[in-house]
Amino acid sequence: MSIFVDENTKVIVQGLTGGQGRFHGLRNRDYGTKVVGGVTPGKGGTDVDGIPVFDTVAEAVAATGATASFVVVPPRFAADAIIEAAQGGITFIVCITEGIPAHDEAVTYNRLVEEFPGVRLLGPNCPGIISPGKCNIGITSGDIALAGGPVGIVSRSGTLTYQALYELSSQGIGQTTCVGIGGDPVPGTNFIDCLAAFEADPETKAVMMIGEIGGSEEERAAEWITTHMTKPVVSYVAGVTAPPGRKMGHAGAIISGSKGTAQAKMEALAAAGVHVCQNPTEAGEKMVEIVKALALG
């Protein structure tokens, strides 16, 4: 099994006619994802390499039965696109857009919670989600993932998500699902959402969690793991050597005072019984060891 998306998930791409939308939308389809439509206002009736384009999400959903959307539009339009997806009947929204104002994210998140409680938003500013061999929504290169499980991956950083996939796949360890939750201040889906889904998924036997400096999501995840998680978790937190008080690209990746340091996060995770590693390669090696032990057990 996989979490959130699988081989039956039908996906539309909001922004399919743009450069990034076309490139990644078509790559997702080439991977085997059921990309059934695109949405660009004013371009309804056209197509992108055979994928029909609609003016609105509602039209696209009515025509295709899609339940998931891949939002790849510029920052100033992203919040509206997310709400339009929810209004149009989409229940799983992946938004990769980087650079959305934090206040827009806060409003969008709270609108979704209040008006569309059944809708899950992944991102913004995330690489997306891949259930290897089944469905890839977002910008992750499908060839670095390996189908068949048994590891679930959840990561705050985009490129480190790829790194984690690579470390496992190159050792012959497959993944059930790999979720990039993104590094923005108001992520629609957090570590705990993913850990809970992996804990409930029978095919996921162990979880790799990649965190980074800033915020307190890793610490909160550590608390949750202490009380709820029975499966082994391997973790790496980026930014041990990052100087405090400077923004490291992600809105989230900033340390203020002693809060949110990599050290504090690693200590919290270690205290929760998580295998805390010093770099992505070490995390990959640790996971290989764990998976082999599980297979023997």
Binding site: G183, I210, I213, G249, A253
Partner: peptide, 21 residues
């Protein structure tokens, strides 16, 4: 590096192998 996470991780790894960014 591309991406803040990978860039931070790159700093960490350079540090771990005895260098400094």
């Amino acid at each position: 590096a591309n991406g803040a996470g990978l860039a931070m991780s790159t700093l960490d790894v350079v540090n771990q192998v005895g260098g400094s960014a």
